[in-house]
Design a protein around this nucleic acid. Structure first.
Lengths: 309, 309
DNA sequence: TTTCCTTACGCCTATCGTAAGCATA
DNA sequence: TATGCTTACGATAGGCGTAAGGAAA
């Protein structure tokens, strides 16, 4: 098979139509150039150039081959440039996992940020449950995960992204709906809708902990896993619930949201990015750098429970 | 710059993810393979593979480079195959020149024949006057010309394609229109429309010669160059004319065509293909072979005046 | 201790450059 | 006769294979 150096020789001769000038352009002498062209023609299996002592011209096969030869050289160039761009994080792809619950506000924000910063980087977005995301990170199938804590694997790095308040949600017309805010103690003995301990472990633990610390025991509790289900049950007057503040973006009809009084900390709902510590995706590194820089401008991030307490 | 052999090395390693197995596949030993990969990485300017003693994997830049590397190898393959196909006449292009007058029937026929025989050959069709066609042939800008005789250049080969009868054309209602055929002698003293000696030299000479040989002298003669102009003037009753039989395909209103009595030869209008004798276009060679074979089946071609008499 | 990638080194093939050959205008 | 591609041939650089080195499980 032929080599790219022979292609370069051929293109030079085809453009100059003169072995001597082509050789000069290639910084070599004519005889080895002639030899390389002969070798190339042998590899291709057909003459590419017609030469007499006075004239050098392309054969029909040579004309066609010239087109493809130029394309090969361009392809080789761009292969190098593209690889460098990927290595510098200006191109390539970032595989991002996210949970259904984090997709409403944070995924679009992250995508927008990435497109602005790295327009030539492809984003592969995959909705997965938290556990699957962490496994995919470890296996290298994901570069970035958007999950709730905790993240205990030492090979993974938790990066706090956002903290949110927790709000009470109750059906329109509920007795508490007239209050501007609701004290935790008021939840004692009321009907309650809660996150499932299996499928929404983080919120289950979070809400359970808050209720326990306040010495509050709701009366009748429904367990569901999706935020939409909670809102539906609240609307159906099966109880009230505690949900992250981002939930208000749904403008869900028939329910109202109320602040909680003296909740500690005030914004207990955590969301973070998780990356594999030894991930070598340069585009990811660029994205993380940018996020760090922007967080730096916004002030110090507060303490985080990325690792299990 | 790198070489295709290095690309082949890289693709093998990227696919095997094991230097030893890749080397076996490439019929070489690991050490030189490692060296080639290192040289390639140096040429690209960034690591393409991450290797420890236990694992070999692609870096993000390597993943991108692999895509383009495969494209390069495919491109090299197809460049060879395409060049061979052109050399064998199965692909490529044929540049065909034709005169406005020959385009009505013969160009479509030629194009259809070529498409059927050589579907991957591009046809470049160019309408040019005969002289320009012959010059273009000599300069290599045309492969094939569709012209009237004579062709006197020794470097060009005349190939008779078709002979046609000459018909009299006269306006509807003309005195001769009631005759089934017209004797040449009847043309003596009638008004006549003729081809221009400058722009339609062939027909001018042909018709002039026929009239002279018959001792016929038309009365008043209009000279025009295009067949459409002749028909228009005949229709306008400025005279009758002698035109090739193919003209009847126009179904021109207001004129009628009549056979000539005892014209010698019966089909004096010649059309031929002209090629450059040393044209090396294999697709052209295939087309000519095919045309020869078909002509052979159709019987011997009659004598031709391709060269000047 | 085994696996397997890398480094080291000698051999050899293949390319280069110089010089001579040869065909064409 | 001059130009310019090809062939011939000796020098050399670069790739290959063998052998040794070194890191990780």
């Amino acid at each position: 098979m032929f080599e790219l150096s022979q292609i370069r020789c051929f293109v030079a001769v085809a453009e100059e139509l003169h072995f001597g000038k082509a050789a000069a352009r290639l910084n070599m002498t004519q005889p080895p150039l002639s030899r390389q062209i002969q070798l190339l023609e042998h590899a291709v299996g057909t003459p590419l150039l017609f030469r007499s002592t006075r004239v050098v011209e392309l054969t029909p096969a040579g004309r066609r081959f010239l087109r493809e030869a130029r394309a090969l050289l361009r392809g080789a160039e761009t292969a190098v440039l593209d690889a460098r761009r990927v290595a510098q994080g200006h191109a390539g792809e970032i595989a991002i996992g996210f949970t259904a619950g984090s997709s409403y506000r944070d995924v679009p924000e992250l995508v927008a940020r990435c497109r602005a910063l790295l327009p030539d980087v492809n984003l592969k977005l995959r909705e997965m449950v938290s556990q699957a995301q962490l496994e995919a990170l470890l296996a290298g199938r994901l570069d970035l995960a958007l999950v709730r804590p905790p993240v205990v694997q030492p090979a993974l790095q938790w990066r706090p992204l956002r903290r949110e308040r927790l709000l009470a949600v109750l059906p329109e017309g509920h007795a508490y709906a007239e209050r501007g805010s609701i004290a935790l103690e008021a939840l004692d003995g009321v009907d309650f809708v809660m996150y499932s301990p299996d499928e929404a472990r983080y919120f289950y633990d979070l809400v359970s902990d808050i209720l326990r610390r306040s010495g509050v025991r709701p009366r009748h509790v429904q367990y569901v896993s999706q935020i939409h289900s909670i809102l539906a049950l609240v609307r159906a007057r099966l109880g009230m619930a505690l949900v992250p503040a981002g939930t208000t973006v749904f403008h869900y009809e028939g329910v109202v949201f109320r602040e909680l009084v003296d909740l500690q900390p005030a914004d207990p709902v955590e969301l973070g990015l998780v990356v594999k510590r030894d991930d070598d995706n340069p585009a990811l590194a660029r994205l993380l750098e940018d996020l760090d820089a922007r967080r730096g401008m916004a002030g110090d991030p507060r303490a985080s429970t990325g690792r299990a307490p």
